[in-house]
């Protein structure tokens, strides 16, 4: 089912509404709980992830903990990520990482907010695993020859955050100024 639908198909909107109304009618959950959850999701933005990235650039011990256990390290910063099981993968001169969810649209929403539409598109989901270098080139990312591309397919319970390389020339910037440079796409590996 999900393999063929695109997001302009309103039948899924109707399905969600019918399902939600049934759950409320049966007392399984309330509209207030649904609203609270939706508001929480919309309150999350890539700025949270950018804060984590900048901290890792400035604190190598934090970075080590972040790579070892992403969720625990993020909580150190006072960021509530709920039940998120976060895997952080580091870009280096040798390795460039790219994240996709080929089966649906799994994404670290607690840290980056809602995924961009292209992340949920069938074209991206199919091509990121099949021809990642061509996809990256379309995003303007052209790793140097000899770089290994690692694609991470979020097929199950983990969620992924790419730790981009710190840009050259930022040595004199503050941690907050560095965080402002980190883009959503870079934390997916596509920027």
């Amino acid at each position: 089912m999900s393999a063929v639908h695109e997001h302009d198909d309103r039948s899924f909107e109707l399905l969600e509404r019918a399902f939600r109304e049934l759950l409320i009618e049966k007392g399984v959950l309330s509209q207030a709980e649904v609203d609270e959850r939706v508001e929480l999701m919309y309150s999350r933005t890539p700025a949270l992830g950018a804060r984590v990235v900048a901290r890792a650039w400035f604190d190598s011990e934090f970075k080590a903990r972040l790579l070892a256990d992403g969720s625990a390290a993020v909580r150190e910063l006072g960021i509530d990520v709920g039940t998120l099981k976060l895997v952080v993968i580091e870009n280096t001169p040798e390795v460039h990482n790219l994240v996709v969810c080929t089966l649906c649209s799994c994404y670290p929403r607690m840290l980056l907010g809602m995924p961009p539409d292209w992340y949920k598109s069938i074209a991206y989901r199919a091509r990121a695993v099949r021809e990642p270098r061509a996809v990256l080139a379309e995003f303007g990312v052209e790793p140097e020859p000899g770089t290994t591309i690692r694609v991470h397919d979020s097929t199950a319970d983990m969620r992924y955050l790419v730790l981009p390389r710190r840009p050259a020339g930022t040595e004199n910037l503050s941690e907050a100024d560095c965080a402002a440079l980190v883009t959503r796409d870079a934390m997916i590996g596509a920027g």
Partner: peptide, 26 residues
């Protein structure tokens, strides 16, 4: 649950890219 790393050239016989490229799947 595991993260399993595959070589792209083993997943796609006609893969264009570096032979070291990988695909990690849970």
């Amino acid at each position: 649950l595991y993260r399993v790393r595959f070589l792209q050239v083993e997943v796609w016989p006609d893969y264009h890219g570096d032979p070291s490229d990988t695909l990690d799947v849970e």
